[in-house]
Simulated assay, not measured.
Amino acid sequence: MVSNGTEASCSRRSVLAAVGTGIAGGVAGCLDSSASVSVLAAGSLAQTVEHHVGPAFESETDTAVHGEYYGSNALLRMVEDRMKTPDVVVSADATLLRDRLYDEYVSGDVEFATNVLGICYAPSTELGERLDAGEPWYEPVRDADDGAVAITEPDLDPLGYRALLAFELAERKHGLDGFRDTVGEAVYREPEEPQLLAGVAAGNRAAAISYRNMAVDHDLPFRSFPPAYNFADPAYADDYATVSFVTDDGYEVVGRPIVYNAAIPDDADNPDAAESLVSFLATSPSLLETAGLSVPEPYPQTAGAEPGVDL
């Protein structure tokens, strides 16, 4: 899971002990009550941060969380181009963050959660009715009208390129000749990840390829893809790695398990609050799971030399 030759280290227990020190030692008492921390995060975490992590962190520390949310590839480009200078960066693809930001912008990160890829749908539509009737997901998706199914824009967002990679793996597994190309051309590509499920929730779009937590956010039905292509099972990592996608700026993405990670830029305006927020993410598994994410062993775990984490 760790690129650039960096090995993730520290067990779940030791990381919790290390990063938990700040909170257990009374973070609220050492941060200014007027303080805030700026977060540039993956769009799939918009509701998680706004309705779960942010309020809980502010209650714990008297520090407000100000978030902006984009596809991870897009937001990492913003950091590279100095268009955004957040205190904390959160990516839905840990390797992508390391490839783009290590050395020049950040010195380490904390992996804190995973997710599951699948299809979220409107039950009142024909596609939804067929899914509820037990049909394999790919049959109604293949039959759907152009634009009835949405993915996020693959050049901007890991969710988008994971959807295309899942189509290719499903094509191989189920013998669906031409499925990736046919469906990949027919889907609507949403450029704003936080808006992916708006059309589904309104009944204007039949379905979207999404993460489980996003379906939880919108209280919509969700069917997880099989482990062979839901990018949630490390046991399938070698199979995931047999498919790839090249973004418009030439970055080649190889299929890999979904891992969220957080990093603190070296030039963060409020590094103390940033360290506290990353610690909070790493020590709040129940909060993240309530939001629809997964926090299995060995998370949290660290890579590099993240500030505030004693490796």
Rank of each mutant, 00 (worst) to 15 (best):
G184E: 04
D155I: 01
L127M: 04
V149E: 03
E168V: 01
L127E: 05
D145K: 11
G128W: 06
E129W: 01
H218C: 12
L164V: 02
D238L: 11
A201P: 00
A148D: 07
E192V: 07
V187A: 10
R162P: 07
L196F: 05
L196P: 10
L159Y: 06
F222H: 15
A163Q: 05
A228S: 14
A163T: 10
K173Y: 04
A232E: 09
G199M: 06
L164W: 02
D155E: 04
P136Q: 07
T182Y: 01
A228F: 04
V216P: 10
R162D: 08
G184K: 02
A208V: 04
A150T: 03
V183D: 02
L165N: 02
R223P: 03
G175E: 03
A150I: 15
P191T: 12
D219Q: 13
A202I: 15
A201C: 06
G184R: 00
P234M: 14
Y240G: 15
N213A: 13
G128D: 11
V200G: 14
V187D: 03
A133E: 12
V183F: 06
R172E: 11
G134E: 02
F167S: 00
G184F: 00
T152A: 07
Y211N: 13
L169W: 00
L164H: 05
A235W: 11
S210A: 13
Y236H: 13
P227W: 09
P234V: 15
E171L: 02
D181I: 01
R189N: 10
I209T: 13
E153D: 09
K173Q: 03
Y138T: 03
D145P: 03
R162Y: 07
G178F: 05
P158D: 10
A235T: 15
A148S: 14
L176F: 01
E129N: 09
R223W: 11
D132S: 11
R130K: 11
A148G: 09
P191E: 13
P221R: 08
P136Y: 15
R189I: 00
T152M: 03
K173P: 01
W137A: 11
I209Y: 12
P234Q: 08
R223K: 15
R172T: 05
T152N: 07
L131W: 03
Y240D: 15
P158H: 04
I151E: 08
L131Y: 03
N230P: 08
L159M: 07
P227F: 14
D238I: 09
N230Y: 12
V216E: 14
D146V: 07
E171R: 02
A186P: 02
L164S: 04
D239A: 12
